[in-house]
Simulated scan of single mutants.
Amino acid sequence: MSENDLFAKLIDIGHKVLDVEACLANLDVFIEAIKSTRIGNIVEIVEIVDNRGTPELKVISNTPAGFKES
């Protein structure tokens, strides 16, 4: 899934985008950040206070290491 795919879904659900380039850039950052997480992790999107307001993912809960074999 690319930033263009996510952008199209935003438009399809009626989300109004004021700055297309900034939205695509944020979606690209989000996609790159999500690649570093594991399936099952619980994350929240936080905004870093910098001159760009770049979003970042913060892991709240990690995936369990695995299940014990019985």
Results as ranks from 00 to 15, higher is better:
residue 6 L to F: 09
residue 49 V to Y: 12
residue 43 V to P: 00
residue 16 K to V: 11
residue 62 N to M: 01
residue 61 S to Y: 07
residue 51 N to S: 00
residue 14 G to Q: 14
residue 28 D to H: 07
residue 23 C to I: 05
residue 18 L to I: 05
residue 3 E to D: 08
residue 45 I to K: 08
residue 21 E to G: 02
residue 4 N to Q: 10
residue 18 L to K: 07
residue 29 V to L: 08
residue 53 G to V: 06
residue 44 E to Y: 09
residue 56 E to Q: 14
residue 41 N to Y: 03
residue 17 V to R: 02
residue 23 C to S: 13
residue 58 K to V: 10
residue 29 V to Y: 03
residue 26 N to R: 04
residue 46 V to R: 09
residue 17 V to Y: 06
residue 7 F to G: 01
residue 68 K to S: 07
residue 26 N to P: 01
residue 31 I to Q: 14
residue 33 A to H: 12
residue 47 E to C: 11
residue 60 I to D: 08
residue 38 R to Y: 02
residue 16 K to T: 09
residue 23 C to G: 05
residue 5 D to K: 08
residue 42 I to C: 00
residue 55 P to H: 11
residue 46 V to D: 11
residue 19 D to I: 04
residue 56 E to N: 14
residue 36 S to D: 14
residue 33 A to C: 08
residue 58 K to C: 08
residue 33 A to G: 13
residue 35 K to W: 06
residue 31 I to G: 05
residue 18 L to H: 10
residue 37 T to S: 11
residue 57 L to G: 05
residue 36 S to Q: 15
residue 14 G to L: 14
residue 16 K to H: 05
residue 1 M to W: 15
residue 45 I to Y: 03
residue 33 A to Y: 05
residue 40 G to V: 06
residue 19 D to H: 12
residue 66 G to W: 00
residue 65 A to T: 05
residue 59 V to D: 04
residue 13 I to K: 02
residue 51 N to K: 06
residue 17 V to P: 06
residue 36 S to R: 13
residue 58 K to T: 05
residue 35 K to F: 00
residue 17 V to H: 07
residue 64 P to E: 03
residue 12 D to A: 14
residue 27 L to C: 00
residue 13 I to P: 00
residue 68 K to Y: 04
residue 70 S to V: 15
